[in-house]
């Protein structure tokens, strides 16, 4: 398997992140773990944005990933982190395969609202489920990794951080290839001209369906990792504000590069954390101004700063 420049760069950054994990304080490790896990969900949102669809319900798969990890340990004796994460992705794929049959018939605001509706249905079901802790959710059981149980606290935190970085790297490389592969480029073609795609003998609907299912799997992985990192899941994971946050991060980063959602998620986490720390009553306003500034000055997202720099170098 030959790696291109982007994939090598991603690998080096991931290695640097893992090494950084050994020297950085616990709070920073935790913040980065959550940011990177959310970036995986955002990758799912971005995959769909590239095909012209905006999902306001990606929290559905984030929640499915998280709850499957939690329920696997709590009710089915699945304590291995990899098995639980894989199961979360599998469940998300099955759900996406069913919902996708309906959702991929719709475009624009209808797709956005329907995806949001399904996410809110899950939220409603979880809120009403006493066995799953209702609005409080429940704690995730202690987990293992190939039979090895990390120490509670810092050990566990560092392990899940490393797992998140490695997962992020694998997903980033796959998505990087996906966006350059047939389906990735043709999904962009669907966004640009669905009629032409149809008259090339392809089914836009099935292309969007494949994209939707793949995006669901990636987002569920992000949900599962968040559950492992926080040790807790609750219905808020499927709430519309959570899905809105993923769209926010996607816009913040832009669609220009596979690394953009990771950078945007980290920036978002820092802005929110420090806004809450210093202006606890107006932190939402700070986030609002941040998004406003990005939309006005960087309409193609934070990544356009990097691409501008590259263009400048070439010139």
């Amino acid at each position: 398997m030959r790696l291109d420049k982007t994939e090598i760069s991603l690998g080096l950054v991931a290695l640097a992140c893992v090494l950084f994990g050994f020297v950085s304080p616990g709070w920073l490790i935790f913040l980065l773990t959550i940011a990177l896990a959310k970036a995986l969900v955002v990758q799912g949102v971005v995959m769909q944005m590239r095909s012209g669809l905006v999902s306001f319900g990606q929290g559905l798969f984030y929640c499915i990933g998280g709850y499957t990890v939690g329920m696997g340990g709590q009710f089915f004796g699945i304590h291995d982190a990899i098995a639980a994460l894989s199961l979360g992705m599998f469940v998300a794929i099955v759900v996406a395969m069913l919902l996708g049959l309906l959702l991929t018939r719709y475009r624009e605001i209808f797709f956005a609202m329907l995806s949001l509706a399904f996410s809110m249905i899950l939220f409603g079901i979880l809120v009403k489920s006493q066995e799953l802790g209702s609005t409080d959710g429940f704690n995730v059981h202690d987990w293992t990794l190939f039979g090895w149980a990390p120490e509670a606290g810092a050990g566990s935190q560092h392990t899940v951080f490393t797992m998140t970085v490695v997962s992020g790297l694998i997903v980033a490389v796959l998505i990087h290839r996906y966006t350059k592969a047939g389906i990735g480029v043709i999904c962009e073609a669907v966004r640009e001209n669905e009629v032409r795609v149809e008259y090339l003998g392809l089914s836009p609907r099935w292309l969007l369906y494949g994209n939707y299912v793949a995006a669901a799997a990636v987002s569920a992985l992000g949900g599962g990792l968040t559950a492992l990192a926080t040790g807790h899941v609750d219905p808020e994971m499927a709430y519309w504000t959570t899905s809105g946050e993923f769209v926010f991060i996607a816009l913040l980063g832009g669609l220009g590069h596979v690394a953009a959602p990771f950078i945007a998620a980290i920036v978002f986490s820092f802005v929110r954390t420090y806004a809450i720390e210093f202006v606890p009553h107006t932190w939402q306003m700070i986030l609002g101004f941040t998004l406003l500034a990005v939309i006005i000055f960087l309409p193609k997202g934070l990544w356009s700063l990097v691409s501008r720099e590259k263009t400048g170098e070439r010139a």
Binding site: L174, R177, Y178, K180, A181, G182, I183, G184, V185, I186, A189, V197, L200, G201, L202, S203, L207, G210, A214
Partner: peptide, 22 residues
């Protein structure tokens, strides 16, 4: 790129998930 998309579509109704289009 318009032509390359058409070429890929002509080759298969199921575009590859990982092989480069170009």
């Amino acid at each position: 790129d318009n032509l390359i998309v058409a070429l890929a579509a002509a080759e298969s109704a199921r575009p590859s998930f990982l092989s480069p289009l170009r």
